[in-house]
Design a protein around this nucleic acid. Sequence first.
DNA 1: ATTAAAGTTAACTCATTGGTTAACTTTATG
DNA 2: CATAAAGTTAACCAATGAGTTAACTTTAAT
Lengths: 111, 111
Amino acid sequence: MNISYDTPQLDMVLDALANQKRRGIIHDLSLQPATVGQLARNHDLTLPAIHKHIRTLENAKLIIRKKAGRTNFVVLDGGTLGLAQNWITQYHVTWGNPQATLDNYISRMQA
Amino acid sequence: MNISYDTPQLDMVLDALANQKRRGIIHDLSLQPATVGQLARNHDLTLPAIHKHIRTLENAKLIIRKKAGRTNFVVLDGGTLGLAQNWITQYHVTWGNPQATLDNYISRMQA
DNA sequence: ATTAAAGTTAACTCATTGGTTAACTTTATG
DNA sequence: CATAAAGTTAACCAATGAGTTAACTTTAAT
């Protein structure tokens, strides 16, 4: 029962990834850092709208932000994705055809 | 711009994973198939409640369901998690300290 | 033939989310 | 100094999500 893997941060990370716009932002940031305003323009979002996404990503520690003057720069912290990757890897098993497994299981249960 | 990776199914998969109860269900099913009722008891959920989670997982093709008499058996389709894994792997790069990368980027921008 | 079990469906509630506009703060520029 | 730029914050709104209870269907058991 490896439930200890399911931490609040994993929860925040997966929550952050469950949104196409935020995944788009992550994609952008995987190429290079950017400012909040650049990301807004790049994704057709108003500043308040992008601000919320940025905060969601920041809370999950998927990005790091730094203020320089009045400009806010943002960088991807790709390492944090490892949390999600680890969780998924645990369950991403492919041995066997699930259909067949299920049929087999049902047969056994009925016997 | 590898946006083609961001398919409706990926969206459904990540959405399904962004919920602790559903991740718990996946964990259970990684050990063995189960019935809808067993999952409900196992996760302190009423039948209508678990039914919605099951449907979410089924729509994402993370599980396969089969009816035997009045009992509904469910099995994990672990392969589908590969979709999420692939997406994450694209961006799970760890070269370099993001802090340093950001500082460096800001310096270059200001020059 | 009744009754119970296992789900499903429908209708509803409450909280959360993603977006909006408007007002504000801080930093830069003419 | 006045104005604009770059964000932030607050207040609001519509849609979605996760849960509920109640009614229903289908299959099994007495």
